[in-house]
Every structure is written in structure tokens, then in C-alpha cells.
Design a protein around this nucleic acid. Sequence first.
RNA 1: GCACCCGUAGCUCAGCUGGAUAGAGCGUUGGCUUGCGGAGCCAAAGGUCGUAGGUUCGAAUCCUGUCGGGUGUACCA
Length: 561
Amino acid sequence: MEQLHAQLAKAITELYPSLDIKAELSRTDEQFGDYATNVALQLAGRLGRSPREIATELTNKLSDIAGDTVKDITIAGPGFINIRVSDEQLITTLKNATQKPQVYSGQKVVTEYSDPNPFKVLHVGHLYTTLVGDVISRIIAATGGDVHRVNFGGDVGLHVAKSMWGILQELGGEHPDKLEAAAGDDLHSRSKWLSSCYIQGNTAYEADEAAKAEIVAVNKKVYEVHAQNDHESAFARIYWTCREWSYDYFKAFYNDLEVVPFEKYYPESVTTPTGIQTVQEQLNNGVYEESNGAVVFNGEKFGLHTRVFINSQGLPTYEAKDVGLIMQKWRDYAFDLSIIITGNDIVEYMKVVQKSIEQFMPELTKRSHHLAHGNVKMTGGIKMSSRKGNGLLAVDVLDAAMEAAREAGLDNRQTTLAAVKYALLRSRIGGDIIYDPKESVSLEGNSGPYLQYAHARARSILAKAEGETLSMPDGLDAGERSLVRKMSEYPEIVERAAKELLPHHLCTYLYELAQVFNRFYEHNRVVGDERQAVRLQLVALYADVLRDGLGLLGIEAPDRL
RNA sequence: GCACCCGUAGCUCAGCUGGAUAGAGCGUUGGCUUGCGGAGCCAAAGGUCGUAGGUUCGAAUCCUGUCGGGUGUACCA
């Protein structure tokens, strides 16, 4: 494609040297050709001539330049130029079938996602952002980026105070020695216990003024634990133990999902001092201002809204902590690009924080990119186990997937994981996702298990022909050509997914590829055919592309299902 | 009120850097079956791309209005 693109550009500049026009080349429908360009249509207006006339001129020029690399060039419709490359040219793409364009070469990229809060449960949002973040990180790494995965979470703040208050109620006071008895000795019972304590605290906070006052006091106490680096007091021992339990639970979650582990975890307690310091410095510089006893950023000046960074009690809000996080990431990595992946409910919030930082470190904002996604909903409602509160949990989705898989007769862990991952990744990032467990585990249609099956099927053809020779084609028949043509798109798709940070392009492509292969396979014999050696080679390459693509999506491609 | 996001076939989604008859899957209807894994293939029905304007040779795609849904809007995260 690059070669053809250069040839087209050359043809344009040679014919119309005075015009500065982009040589746009795109993939087109197979019936038209391999590539198409609409430059003749664009030139028509500028030259005041008929588009088809220009197209003819360009076609002749391009034929001269491209020579053998092009099979035929046709003009269609209002003036599209359709180009079919030679079979030989197409075959050369097979040599680098899974090679990826190094679009992030030489760049240090920090990706932040997942962001669960210690002491609290993992919601679907955490599941989704974890998977999206993992895949985006994989794609950037595969395209040459030096990726650093980081995680952020609130180990201080009101929600922690609510949890701690609930914990103290359960323990009947500051009795760290009673923790194990109350919470149990395994990961899951402990995380359940912690989340029930949070619910208890949250409920009391809203219903009971006295409890609310106590929780506010606990909040301050948690900050003091950090300020004094207290690991000795009874209160501190409870706090640190429970915080550790939460982290253990998160780690187990990531492990279960088979995502790449995080390199660094930034707890809010760590980013807070940096945040406060930065905000105070910039308060003196006039970036932030005092208002009603609080430190705010006046976003209205920029068409945004005003937000509080340090509240009137002198405590930092999420805003200040986030400023601290960004500063620390910068100090730790001096990144070229920082990608933050969160739900889209905080886009406005993030704009305010970024705008405030832009006032004193514009370079930092320029290198930061906030990627926001929608909410995940599940068809058929949520099965509320034995808990209060609302909202879909990560386990609800995973449980539903497992149950659907079992009903479909697949209780393979890899298949279930593939089902969930693919279902959440196949839609464009941004909008809400409707998760249908039954559909996600189906082996028919656009699903993760279907692609795993497609891959396994190809591998089994190869296994059956073990010992037979494979050879690269020197020519292609129609069916083979369609398959090779589709495979040759792979690097372009990876490039697009990488540049746009949109993994769903990969899903769409892999599914289409499987369809093209199935069509080929239905109509062409592989084993036993006189073109067996060539076709086996194509099957092998197809299986490699599928495995490679699924790998970028964090989905295993086992040889057998 | 204001700001941001979303609105494409019955359902779930692609397509959005403007281009050729708007594509898939599920579901529905019909066909292929001694098959290299049929978990597939072939085909049909189904869409005034929320709606009204505008820009353009050309708009699902860009702009404006409008309707519907979601989210955010000072001391929560």
C-alpha cells in the first residue's frame, strides 16, 4: 500500500505540480479493485475540468509509474480510480503478514486505567476499563511504544472513612486482632466483608447525623495515619491490613482476567502531598484562586465550570489528588504520551483539571490524552446476590458469562474469558455497551468463541496435513486471492487501531477475515487438492494472523477447543 | 438553565479523516448435507441513517435548529 501510495503521489505531482493535493488512497470493495482514490473528483473542482477526464490522465500516468506492480486500473462512477494490484505484489505482503507498523516507535507511553478504590468493590466499569486499557497498552507496545501501565486508586478520602467507620462498628472498636475472625481468611470473603462495611458506613452517613460526624472525624484520622506514617496504632493497623486485603483482591482479579500486570500503583495517599503542594504553588501564581474558604480553579473563564481543589477544611479533593498524580507520572516517566482511560462521566471534570494544569505546564497537557468510555449494561437485568446497593459488579458479568457458557455446554475458562473480552471490545469506545451473556458465548456469529473456533479449525487442518510441504504461491486463483487480499489488510488495521486508540477495528477485521476464510474453505479443497502446498501455506498464515490479532485483544487462541 | 456524549434493519453493532447500490451478526424464510471440525456456505425479506434545514458536484459522516435518551454542573469520587 505504501508503495502504491507513493506512486500515486508521484503521478499527481508530475501532472499537476502547482497543486498541493493529498494522494488519498483507500481500500475499496473487492468488486471494484483493491484500492481506490477519489483525487480526480477533488481535482476537478480546482482545475475546472471533468473528473473523468482527469481520471483518465492520472490512470495513464500511474500505469507508467507503477508498471508491473499493478494489474489493472479502471475508472468508475463519477471519476473514481480503482486499482487492482498484481498477484505477485499481493503475494509479497504475505511475507510480513503479522508485521506491525511501528507508529509509536521511540515513544514512552504511560497508560492509566482500571483505577479501583481500596475498601470498595469492583464494578463493571472497572472490568471494562481494565480490559480496554490492557488492549490499548498491548496495541501500543506492539506498534513500537515503550508502554508503562499504571493504576490509581483512592486509599484516602470520604469513601475510605465510610468503610473504616463500618469496619470499626463490626469490630466493636479499634481491635485489629479481631479482624481475621470478622473478615475470614480468604481473599473473597475479605473483599465481601469490606464492601459490606462500606455499605454500612455509607448508609449511616446518609441517614444518621451523629454517624456522619464520626465519619468526618475518621476521614481526618486516615489522613493523619499517612501524615505521621503511623503503622503502630490500633487504628492504623486496621487501616493498613484492610488496604492490603483490597490490593490482594485486585491483583487476583487482574490475574483471573489474564491482563498484563501493572507496573506501578499510585495510591491517592501518595499523590496527595504532591497535589496539595502544586496547587498551593500555583495558587500563589494565580492559576488557582480562593473562594469561600476553598481553593478553586475558575473554569468559567475557559467555558468550563469551576471546581474545588482544596476544600474549606484544608483537605484536598479528587482534583488536587489528580494534579498530584499527573505531576508524579511526569516525574517518574517524562512520557511522550499519557493516556488516561476512564468512564465518560468525568470528561467535564477532566477538562477542568487539564485546563488548570495547562496554565502552568502546557507541555504536560499537550501530551495527555483522556479516553472516555460508556457504561456497561447487561441484558436480562442483574442477579442481585445477597447484597444491598445497586450497580452492576464485575463479578455479576463474569458470573453471567460462566453460567451462559455452562448452559451452552462450554465450561472452558479460556472460552468464557474470550467471550467477555470480545463482547466488551468489539464496540467502539465511547458509547454504552449492552452485554448479552448468551450471545457472547455463542459459537455462531460475531463472538470471541467463534474466532477461537475459527482459529482451532484452521490449526486442525494443518495438524491433519502434518508432514506435508507448504509453499508460498507464485500465482493465485480467485478464491485464494480474496483470502490473501483480506490478510494483506491486517497491518493497516493494526495501524488504524493504534493511531485511533480504538481496538474494535481489530475485532471487526478479524471477524471479516474469518468470514472470508470460511467462504474460501467452503468452495476450495485444501488437503488433497493439486494446490495443496500453496493452500496449506495460506491456511497457516491465516491462522497466524488470527492468533496474532486475538493476542492483541488479550484473547488466547488455543489449537483445540 | 448551561455543557458534553449518544440516536443507523425487530435486537446487538460496524460504517463517522464527506464519495460509488448504507454493511455484519442474532432473529425470520428458503436452499446446500456420505462434510479437509456444517460451530459452515448460498440466498431472500427487513433501513426516508431521530427530525428539519444548511454547506458541497456529492452528507449516515461536516454546520445549525429541533425532538428523544444519558451524564456532568463548588467543597463526593
